[in-house]
Write a protein that binds this DNA or RNA. Structure first.
Lengths: 232, 232
DNA sequence: CGCGCGCTTGACTAACTTCAAAGATGGTGG
DNA sequence: CCACCATCTTTGAAGTTAGTCAAGCGCGCG
């Protein structure tokens, strides 16, 4: 069952986890209208949703699980631009073709929407266009924050910033679930697996975090972590 | 004349360099309507247009010269997210407040537009909203390419990529003008001034580039430069 | 002409990577 | 239910790249 096609089912108008996590500032208010035209897609771990260069006929919203958006250099070096969690939109910015590969970090379900249907909706409801613009702007802000991180922060600051950002998104302030591997985190932060692991160990022995089972991380001293992150 | 206020003049409906450089894919077609509601602003080198956190009442289009959009950490480390050249829009994505400081790299002039006027125009002309979205998406793509550069490329690859990107934007294929200092370039590429300088020297002695006077760089072997950039 | 700023170059250092191997973890099949 | 195996994580030691510190060079401006 490795190379199976993506399963796709009739949409049970499912909001599931979607409404619980309004990660992006621009509210789901207007965009909720979309759910009537969506279809549910299931992915299992490491399965690709689409690749760089694929025609961007659809875009998606994460319902459950997590996915990563990445780009790869010719010799295999990979960078993960962002992790997408329930409530986040995927590929909504693509015009024509996708500019990144999107794969499942863990088993995941997404709502799939056709771009042409979106265009029609936007025509009817101009406010929707604004929500859309807001979503893309949020992504741009996130990317610019990541540029500062990759360009100017050291390994400890990168991991601290990452943990805080994930905590922010997860809702729970002091407890984060990290469904991705150390290698994924490394590829997101511009480090190596080993360095990420070492910094985790270091933060743990400093008492700043605690590593629970099942990919859970407890932030024991949020303030100290913020200091380490060199929040600007 | 160091801390002078920004000079601002009545708009002579000036297109100047603006029409010559359509850097961003989304055409100026619809956005040309904006020029009737703009005002010209002049900056001299290193003068700030606006700072992080400032209310975003206006946005701008570069007419002549160049500006940089940057963020700074508490201890002074700086990262330049992007350089903006004639034809590029500045701060168009800002909602409420600006998320970066924008300063002049060289003496520059910009066209200033009020956000509220833009909103009105978008209401009247829905197609304008699409152009707007296209502009922001282009910025997002550029930012994501820069993420890969900062996360996974080495110093030579970074500078080679930068030179090629600047050449692309400048129109002339094999000749680039670099109005910014080595330090600016370093802060854009996540390196130090010294490293940037060393790589310039290295590329020069390899015969890949030639440094002309007046901040001009000639790309002598574009192909080789592309190989060095590890284009993905 | 001289001064200041930016650029270049050199020697040394630090941070992160690479290479290697041992230690967890969790899912599967007997 | 337990043992096994693949995969992920952690840890150690050595190596590299880019950073830091310091000094000299060169161009442009007053």
């Amino acid at each position: 069952m490795l190379a199976t096609a993506i399963r796709t089912e009739a949409a049970p108008n499912s909001h599931l986890a979607a409404s619980a996590f309004a990660t992006r500032p621009a509210g789901d208010g207007d965009l909720a209208a979309l759910d009537r035209i969506g279809t549910v897609v299931s992915l299992h771990r490491d399965q690709a949703l689409f690749g760089e260069g694929d025609p961007a006929q659809y875009f998606y919203k994460v319902l459950t699980g997590a996915v990563r958006s990445c780009r790869v250099l010719a010799d295999g070096r990979r960078h993960i631009a962002e992790f997408l969690l329930p409530g986040d939109f995927v590929g909504i910015e693509a015009a024509g073709t996708h500019h990144a590969t999107v794969e499942a970090v863990s088993d995941a379900t997404l709502m799939r929407y056709s771009r042409s249907a979106l265009d029609r909706l936007v025509q009817q409801q101009p406010r929707l266009g604004k929500s859309l613009l807001g979503l893309v702007c949020s992504e741009l802000y996130a990317a610019q924050a990541q540029l500062l991180l990759l360009g100017r922060k050291n390994a400890v600051e990168r991991l601290a910033s990452f943990l805080l950002a994930m905590a922010e998104r997860s809702g729970e302030a002091d407890r984060v679930s990290l469904p991705m591997t150390r290698c994924d985190i490394a590829d997101h932060l511009g480090l190596t697996t080993e360095t990420v692991s070492r910094i985790f160990t270091q933060l743990k022995s400093q008492g700043v975090i605690r590593l629970g089972g099942g990919s859970e991380v407890e932030l024991k001293h949020r303030g100290e972590l913020e200091a380490l992150a060199e929040a600007a």
